[in-house]
Computed example of a mutant assay.
Amino acid sequence: MPIDAGSLHFIVGPAIALAVLVLIGFFLRWAFASDSSAKPRRPEELLTPVASMTRRESALAFRAVLSDAGIRSTIRHPAAHRSDVLVFPEDLDRARALALSFHGQ
Rank of each mutant, 00 (worst) to 15 (best):
A5H: 11
A5T: 14
G6L: 10
G6V: 02
S7A: 12
L8N: 13
L8T: 11
F10L: 12
A15P: 01
A15K: 00
A15Q: 02
I16N: 00
I16E: 01
I16L: 15
A17R: 05
A17F: 12
L18M: 12
A19W: 03
V20D: 01
L21V: 09
L23F: 10
L23V: 09
L23D: 05
I24Y: 03
G25I: 08
F26T: 06
F26N: 10
F27W: 15
L28Q: 08
R29Y: 13
R29M: 13
R29W: 14
W30P: 01
W30S: 10
F32H: 11
A33M: 06
A33K: 09
S34K: 14
S34P: 09
D35I: 04
S36A: 15
S36Q: 13
S36E: 15
S37V: 15
A38S: 08
K39L: 14
P40D: 09
R41E: 12
R41T: 00
R42Y: 12
E44H: 09
E45I: 00
T48I: 12
T48D: 02
V50P: 02
V50T: 10
A51H: 05
M53A: 04
M53P: 00
R55M: 12
R56S: 07
E57P: 00
S58W: 04
L60Y: 06
L60E: 13
F62I: 04
R63M: 13
R63E: 15
A64E: 10
V65T: 14
V65S: 07
V65K: 04
L66R: 07
S67N: 11
S67P: 02
S67K: 12
S67M: 07
A69I: 03
G70L: 04
I71G: 08
T74C: 08
R76S: 14
H77Y: 04
H77D: 08
H77K: 08
H77E: 15
P78C: 05
P78H: 02
A80N: 06
A80M: 06
H81N: 13
H81D: 15
R82E: 10
D84E: 15
V85R: 02
D91V: 11
D91K: 07
D91A: 13
L92P: 06
D93R: 14
R94M: 04
R94W: 05
R94I: 11
R96N: 12
R96M: 12
R96I: 08
A97Y: 11
L98W: 03
S101Y: 01
F102M: 02
H103Y: 10
G104L: 07
G104Y: 03
G104W: 01
G104M: 02
Q105Y: 00
Q105S: 13
